[in-house]
C-alpha cells in the first residue's frame, strides 16, 4: 500500500507560526491584559493548525502573524471544543 501523503499545514507559507503557551505564559498573558480566560478570542480544537499542534481545550495558542502595518503581530486564541 502506498504511504499516506503527509501534509503539514505549517509548511504552507500563508499559515502563520502557531505555538502553545505554557501555563506560566498563559498566566502572564491574562495578567497583562487583565482579562478572564473567556475574554480571549477563540479557536476550535478541530482547526487544522490546532490539530497539528495537538493542543487541548483550555490551552492558549500564540499566533505570530506578518502584519502590513506592524511587521510582526502576535495574536492569542483560547482553544475551545467544537
Amino acid at each position: 500500500m502506498a504511504t499516506k501523503k503527509e501534509f503539514n499545514v505549517f509548511m504552507h507559507e500563508l499559515v502563520p507560526e502557531h505555538r502553545v503557551l505554557s501555563e506560566k505564559e498563559k498566566e502572564e498573558l491574562l495578567n497583562r491584559y487583565r482579562i478572564k480566560i473567556s475574554q480571549l478570542p477563540q479557536i476550535l480544537v478541530s482547526d487544522p493548525a490546532v490539530v497539528e499542534l495537538g493542543a487541548k481545550p483550555g490551552d492558549v495558542i500564540e499566533i505570530k502573524r506578518k502584519s502590513p502595518t506592524a511587521g510582526v503581530y502576535y495574536y492569542y486564541r483560547l482553544v475551545v471544543e467544537g
Partner: peptide
C-alpha cells in the same frame, strides 16, 4: 486605554488597534 480593541463585555478583538496602534488620521503616511 491599554490599546486593545474590545467588545462591551471585554472580549478582545485586537491586542493592539490596527495591529500597530496607529490612528491613520494622525499618522504620517501610515
Amino acid at each position: 486605554y491599554d490599546g486593545t480593541v474590545r467588545d462591551p463585555t471585554g472580549i478582545i478583538v485586537q491586542f493592539k488597534y490596527g495591529e500597530d496602534g496607529v490612528d491613520p488620521m494622525r499618522s504620517w503616511g501610515g
